[in-house]
Amino acid sequence: MPLLEISDLRKSFRTPEGETQTVLDVPTFSLETGQQIALRGASGTGKTTLLNCIAGILSPTSGTVRLDGHDLATASEPQRDALRARCIGYIFQTFNLLQGYTCMENVLLGMSFGRGPDTDAARGLLDRVGLSHRLHHRPGQLSVGQQQRVAVARALANQPLLVLADEPTGNLDPHNAREALQLIREVCEETNAALLIVSHDPIVLDQFDDCQDLAELNHAAQEVAA
């Protein structure tokens, strides 16, 4: 059974004019444990909405999103929160680190709602991403590349089954982008976590053997393009 299995997923929003707009219509998609897939998608193709539906942040309008045997579409919000904390690591384009917290605290917070804070494990993760000398620095005291490394460490804090990465290199220069991507892929391989990355950055997409076009996957995006 695949780790992630999507079928007939639709997500619609109500526009300010009162009309219903469907931004996501994915008939089928699946991801195996340990598999790494890149989804190519330009702005407005529903990348973030898809990842938010998979993460249980958004509730689908219809269809099923089955993660590790649990259907996120029918789960209650607290159940989705718990599943997200336990099974998913999320890496954002803007990192979304908490500015008032140190690197260590950011990683500990990532653990807090899942397996629980573990200082030694957090230190080990930061060491793995090359930040053992920056444990007590705040994000504002780090370079952009270092901030992304903290975000990677935080995403892996709960030993997730699935890592979602939304334009993880969007704010990085080419050199840092390659390094960050390599790091994400390596740590996912080491922990056997599946990786679903959405990007429109060729530097990212060229690295993946399994690269799919989100516009083809998402029928709603095709309708908008047409």
């Binding site: 993460a55 942040i57 919000e77 929160d81 997200r84 979304n96 908490l98 709602f113």
Partner: peptide, 16 residues
């Protein structure tokens, strides 16, 4: 608000 959104994305519930 962003801090709360990040905490929620990390798995914190509304009750938290």
């Amino acid at each position: 608000r962003r801090e709360f959104a990040i905490l929620r994305a990390l798995g914190a519930g509304r009750g938290t």
